[in-house]
């Protein structure tokens, strides 16, 4: 009998949805990047992302599954990735354990003719790595290859000031906890404002995740955030729809 892990790692076991990240330019949203959101095999328990990644953690197979996700993502959306940024989640533990990860990514990008500068590696679950020297050495390899680095869930848990100062991300992704409903929450806006200032001082840009209303959008742009993501702007979508999205017609995606 095949295990869930085998089904995940089999060809076609990872299904990917893509959520656009927009840049607000002259008050209008323009496609900036797409975040790849991996799901497990259709019909399995791992079709739900929380179950998928909880299971992968418990099997201690982050490296194998991260590699499978990267391959599934780049092979399914290389046409888009040649002309737009693609953000791919990677476990911090993978960067600690897999010294060949940058090489693997580089070879895939060469195969699909995707410029490495179009790839954003979004580091998740920073609490789990235990060997900072190896983590930062592999992070450095990614940077030297031209890959941009993002940190998500900023403001919560291990995405704290220390992690930001040490990782120096190109993109600071503010957690939806602070963004959704921030138009009516002065304290949440104060937290966003402080992250905008920090990103500016550290030379990065801020992405506000969880934009779910015009109010949210107006509030974060008033605080100086230019990169936005959320259901109000565009839902995660399969690659077939994504192929029609380009910076030129990003406005259509918002409507």
């Amino acid at each position: 009998m095949s295990t869930l892990l085998q089904e995940i790692l089999d060809h076609g076991g990872i299904n990917v949805f893509y959520q656009p990240i927009f840049e607000i330019v002259d008050g209008k949203p323009v496609l900036f990047a797409v975040e790849a959101l991996s799901r497990g095999p259709k019909g399995s328990n791992a079709e739900k992302p929380d179950v998928l990644f909880e299971y992968v953690r418990r099997k201690a197979k982050e490296v194998e599954v991260d590699r499978a996700c990267v391959k599934a993502i780049l092979s399914s959306m290389y046409m888009v990735a040649r002309r737009a940024l693609v953000s791919i989640n990677v476990h911090a533990l993978t960067l600690e354990r897999d010294d060949q990860f940058t090489q693997y990514l580089t070879e895939l990008c060469q195969l699909f003719r995707i410029p490495l500068k179009n790839v954003i590696m979004e580091i998740v679950e920073q609490q789990r790595y235990r060997n900072p020297a190896r983590f930062f050495s592999n992070l450095d390899l990614l940077r030297k290859a031209g890959v941009r680095i993002a940190v998500d869930d900023i403001g919560l848990g291990y995405s704290n000031y220390r992690a930001l100062v040490e990782i120096k991300p190109d993109l600071f992704k503010i957690d939806r906890y602070f963004v959704t409903g921030c138009g009516k929450n002065a304290h949440a806006r104060a937290a966003i404002e402080s992250i905008v200032l920090l990103a500016d001082r550290l030379g990065g840009r801020v992405v506000a995740e969880g934009i779910e209303s015009d109010d949210d959008l107006e509030a974060v742009t008033a605080l100086g955030v230019r990169l936005v993501q959320g259901y109000h702007l565009a839902l995660p979508q399969p690659v077939q729809t994504l192929n029609a999205v380009s910076p030129r017609n990003a406005q259509e995606v918002c409507e």
Partner: peptide, 16 residues
Amino acid sequence: VDCARELEEAEAMIVS
């Protein structure tokens, strides 16, 4: 009804 075939799959389902 949900089903799980192994320990780690059961644990992931129980957490979620």
